[in-house]
Write a protein that binds this DNA or RNA. Sequence first.
DNA 1: TCGGCCCTATATAGGACCGATATATATAGG
DNA 2: CCTATATATATCGGTCCTATATAGGGCCGA
Lengths: 180, 180
Amino acid sequence: MALDVKMKCLGILSWGDASGYEIQKEFSEGTASHFVDASFGSIYPALNKLMDEGHVTCKTHAQEGRPDKKVYSITPTGRLAFQQALKRAPSDDKFRSEFLFYLLFADDLAPEYLAELLDRKTAEIDATIDLIRENEGPLSPGQEFVRGYGLAVHEAIKKYLSKEKARFIKSSAPDTAKAG
Amino acid sequence: MALDVKMKCLGILSWGDASGYEIQKEFSEGTASHFVDASFGSIYPALNKLMDEGHVTCKTHAQEGRPDKKVYSITPTGRLAFQQALKRAPSDDKFRSEFLFYLLFADDLAPEYLAELLDRKTAEIDATIDLIRENEGPLSPGQEFVRGYGLAVHEAIKKYLSKEKARFIKSSAPDTAKAG
DNA sequence: TCGGCCCTATATAGGACCGATATATATAGG
DNA sequence: CCTATATATATCGGTCCTATATAGGGCCGA
């Protein structure tokens, strides 16, 4: 990967100060969550390394009833490191789908189960489209382009599913068809 | 993940005997390569574990000039284990794109570099579409559905890129626009 | 009102997995 | 002729995710 967790964190911090918790929220709920991620297990160690390297500074805000909040800020050095990282070619997009892998074994699956898989997928896609649509606020050109990209992909899937679902389920259950 | 490397290997082996090398080729070049993967570093240990568990058997074919080829066959127990695995809900599809992440920082990128990123992406998508189209042989309903799914997604991206590219590059370089 | 669950918040240990490397040779291409 | 690629297995180092630990706050339903 061209960008390891450290660089991804720097990217988020280039938008403004944040705690490890808030960075993770960006990766699990924010716009970026649709195409990048990082877990607590890698973010916290990454932030410590970034401290050692002088790419971020940290201010501890005492809190009652929960661990102190450690708010990180990117330094000029950190900003430079991130800019350098962006000059490297991004690694290839990666799409992983157990759903599609399952479908390669459609012959072995009960038609009802197959239908369930497709229905769940459809629901998931609809939910994602709603999520993307909700994100309307004032967007930068980059954010707007990315939003449109996501919508284009998911709407194409939605269309494909609604168009091909019935035919697929019928054609992949030849035994049942003959028996009926 | 609902399916670990062991189960993915069992899936491939359910289509016929194969060596570790051949299984990996399926994950790196076959139809499945577009949405699942596994490396040598995980496949070889996985096959050893599957041996211990009695899910596969192994026949060694002596070869000259290269390591003996170890051809694995799935056992009835293995087949059962795979069928059981398919009953668990597939984990959510995962799309990871450093390309889109880069675009969130489009303000910080030179317009020429931005154009280069988009051009490379377009070329990559075109190549993928060609690859999918080539795969024409006699396909099972499942394979055909998956192929159509892939085409639908990639053609939607192609269309979006060609439609929005120029506008995006112009709008994301306001400084340059003002200067020009 | 009380219990359970989720949210905030940091942190680590264990394990899964990838990428690079080692090894050895045949074949194809320039 | 030399290099690159393909065949074929295997391991090591390192990165990263998952699950868990800790701890108190607020919120919702019974």
